[in-house]
Amino acid sequence: MEIPYTVEPRPDTGLYNAKLGIWLFLASEVMLFGALFSSYVLLRTGNPNWVQHPMNVPMATLNTMILISSSVTVILAWAGLRMKNFAQFRKYGILTLLLSFGFMVVKGIEYNAEFELGLFPWTDNYMAVYFTMTGLHGLHVIGGIVVLGYLLGPGAKMWKTKPEQFTNRVETFGLYWHFVDLVWIFLFPSLYLL
């Protein structure tokens, strides 16, 4: 027997299963990063000797632009599928992938520059917070790259057999990707600017 509402939404909840699932997953992610942000606030306000090292704001601004653009392209990729235009999905999907690689490259250059300045996770708690939070965020970006790579590569076969389910997959990926973007929108000011 097939499991109902894997593709079409259930009338009384208005959601298909995976969409509710991804929202719950994002709720748990909010709690994960929420705990980290709260810890950052508590550690910083509770430590009179807190040191804020100067960070590379232009690089981080560039990364913010990259990530916001990727949020736009992932929407356009999904919109392509909604309009039965697989070529548009491919174009914007690959663009999203390139942007997320770009983000990781910029992040890597930043990390490298900090290591050269002698700033490591064990240097002090600002660097500890910085590396833990951006590192965990980076892992989320890598996770996104893996999933999007799958959707553009071997997973794209599903477009031929079950186009609606494939569109839903891209939509749930998009929701996740927006969340990864949103986390960065909070990380950028709180780690680099404040």
Partner: peptide, 29 residues
Amino acid sequence: LVLAFPPLEAAGVMQLMDRVAGTSFFMPS
């Protein structure tokens, strides 16, 4: 479970960082 476990996961990551990477999240001066 969905809402309460992730903060412990965050705390676990921080304690792991303290033990493995030598950070001081939970280490007083």
